[in-house]
């Protein structure tokens, strides 16, 4: 892989706090190496802004290896940038060429209000989990781990759903700002396991109720969420969630 350096134009959303009105600002960055990660390019820009006595761009990031789910940029119209099954922190500058213009926006959804610049408040996800995204088992109550065999296929399917990192790209990509992929991943993860059976009905009803309350939109199965999910969570989970929801709604007292 040949390395190269490039000059870029960045249009970045700046917003002082949740109450202020934001706008785009344009920055030129020079001599960006193709080996840099996207966030390192942002670091370089921020370093310059600080030296110039300006405020650096605030953005969420932490592990920088694609697993914590903190990073959240909407880059040139796509959550986490152009690469498939990828997070912003794993995006590298070789995805761009000299002279490119890159527009960087925060996740936009009523349920994810902007906190500052590119940082949004995703605590709605935590509240959805609080509504039922768990198995109620106090520490010390567990029986031997192998006393409950679980079909390998189901365990694997459950794991695939549990791989969700809670980044919110699904909401950002959805034209309805729906959180169905996130909620369905959790519902599937727990519904596929026998441990999750006792709370199966209340879980799905309560989580959906909370999701609606938080102001996420309704799912119209456009499939945008699946196509941008960094962990490739399948939309089939949404259909599973619907089935859980309908059955629970019809059979609960």
């Amino acid at each position: 892989m040949e390395h190269y350096s490039m000059n870029l134009t960045l249009k970045v959303w700046r917003q002082k706090n949740k109450d202020s009105k934001g706008d785009f600002e344009t920055y030129k960055v020079e001599n960006i190496s193709s080996e840099m990660s996207f966030l390192e390019m942002m670091d370089v820009l921020n370093d310059r802004l600080i030296r110039e006595g300006k405020e650096p761009i605030a953005f969420d990031h932490d592990c920088r290896e694609g697993i914590c789910g903190t990073c959240s940029m909407y880059i040139n119209g796509r959550p986490h940038g152009p690469w498939h099954a990828n997070t912003t922190c794993q995006l590298h500058m070789r995805a761009y060429k000299d002279g490119d213009t890159i527009v960087v926006e925060p996740w936009r959804a009523k349920a994810f209000p902007v906190v500052k610049d590119l940082i949004v408040d995703r605590s709605a996800f935590d509240r959805i989990i609080q509504a039922g995204g768990y198995i109620s088992v106090n520490t010390g109550n567990a029986v031997d781990a192998n006393s409950l065999p679980i079909e390998k296929e189901k365990a694997d399917e459950s794991f695939a759903a549990a791989a969700c990192i809670g980044c919110g790209a699904c909401v950002a990509a959805c034209k309805n700002s729906s959180a169905m992929l996130f909620v369905s991943a959790k519902v599937s993860h727990l519904a596929l396991l026998p441990q999750g059976a006792p709370e199966r009905k209340t879980r799905v009803l309560n989580m959906i109720a909370q999701m609606d309350k938080e102001g996420f939109g309704a799912c119209t199965n456009t499939q945008a969420c699946e196509s941008v999910c960094p962990k490739e969570i399948s939309m089939t989970n949404i259909a599973k969630l619907n089935s859980e929801y309908i059955i629970s709604g019809l059979t609960s007292r």
Binding site: V137, G140, N141, A142, N146, A155, H189, L190, Q195
Partner: peptide, 20 residues
């Protein structure tokens, strides 16, 4: 006990075909 607790919480550990 940690493994027991985590399995009870629904942590999807890798399993063999026999389900263990």
């Amino acid at each position: 006990s940690i493994i027991d607790q985590c399995v009870a919480q629904g942590v999807p550990f890798a399993r063999e075909y026999g389900g263990l």
